[in-house]
């Protein structure tokens, strides 16, 4: 009786635990199913490398290269900001902040991470973009530069907290050994601690990158929305996420346009999937290297 109940409960929990996997597989299936018709119609190569995105023109053109490049540009720009700031903050927290400072600064980073993306987008639209436009006399404020700055700020706390985790795994003995041979704190940091935490820090950067490329509302509001291949950081662009969010409402269900948007989502999903798996593998190796089981 008792044992039967125990086994039943265990089966129940096992089933529920597979929900995450089921959702992940469900997402993949849905994306593939809805995306395949457009690949069949246009061909994967023309779809991925086509330079014109005119989904509602007659005849429509479905080349998403401008959208992919837009995503890459704004993500690269975000990295220029979030890598130094995020890793720098993590190093500060780990190396220089005393317990009291940490008690304040770590929550600041967490709170910054919890600001909703719509608020970042709004802030970028009404504060940052006009300011940049005036200050640098730009033709348009909503462009790659503005988007990169906002995305960089958004990804900074992600990079900072994961990098800080990685630093905290570096054994104390490394630092002591370095001090013992007469290195100062800066040398210990740059020559011993950063290399030891290196792969953990690269995990942080990859996940920050993943966050930036998948970000939707911010780029929808701030990137400017023009679906052309960018030639400078002052051009308005339409990254992949923005295209999906902006156009899905107008694309008739089952139309080519609709399928094309799912195909963009599929590409986006695959990119973030690769990032996440890479981060997973690197962090596993990192833990092994430092002899940590978990």
């Amino acid at each position: 009786m008792n044992r039967k109940k125990e086994r039943l409960i265990k089966y129940l929990f096992t089933t529920l635990a597979f929900a995450s996997l089921a959702f992940l597989i469900g997402i993949v299936l849905v994306l593939f199913k809805e995306a395949l018709p457009i690949f069949a119609k246009v061909g994967p190569k023309a779809f991925l490398l086509g330079e014109s995105w005119y989904p509602t023109a007659e005849p429509p053109e479905f080349g998403i290269l401008p959208l992919i490049l837009a995503s890459l540009w704004v993500t690269a720009g975000a990295l220029v900001i979030c890598v130094p700031l995020g890793v720098g903050s993590a190093l500060y927290l780990h190396e220089l902040a005393g317990p009291r400072q940490r008690a304040v600064l770590k929550p600041v980073i967490e709170i910054l991470a919890s600001v909703p993306s719509i608020v970042y987008g709004f802030f970028g639209m009404v504060i940052l973009a006009p300011w940049l436009q005036d200050t640098f006399e730009l033709p348009i404020g909503l462009c790659v530069l503005t988007t990169s700055i906002i995305l960089g700020v958004m990804a900074t706390p992600t990079v900072a907290s994961i990098a800080e985790d990685a630093l905290s795994y570096v054994p104390r003995s490394f630092r002591e050994a370095s001090f013992a041979v007469g290195a100062d704190r800066w040398q210990t940091l740059t020559k011993v601690i950063i290399p030891a935490a290196g792969s953990g820090i690269s995990t942080a950067i990859i996940l920050g990158m993943s966050r930036a490329i998948g970000e939707t509302m911010t780029v929808l509001m701030v990137a400017g929305g023009s679906a052309v291949i960018p030639s400078s950081i002052f051009d308005p662009v339409r990254p992949m996420t923005a295209a999906i969010a902006a156009e899905m409402g107008e694309a008739p269900v089952g139309s080519e346009h609709y399928n094309a948007l799912f195909a963009i989502a599929l590409i986006l999903f695959l990119i973030t999937f690769v990032f996440n798996i890479a981060a997973e593998l690197i962090s596993r190796r990192f833990r092994l290297k430092l002899g940590l089981s978990r």
Partner: peptide, 22 residues
């Protein structure tokens, strides 16, 4: 399961939107 949880956490939010729509 751990890998799928981590990956689910990394899926862009707009993709969840498409999944929900479908």
């Amino acid at each position: 399961l751990r890998v799928s949880v981590n990956n689910l956490a990394g899926v862009p939010s707009v993709v969840f939107g498409l999944f929900g729509l479908t």
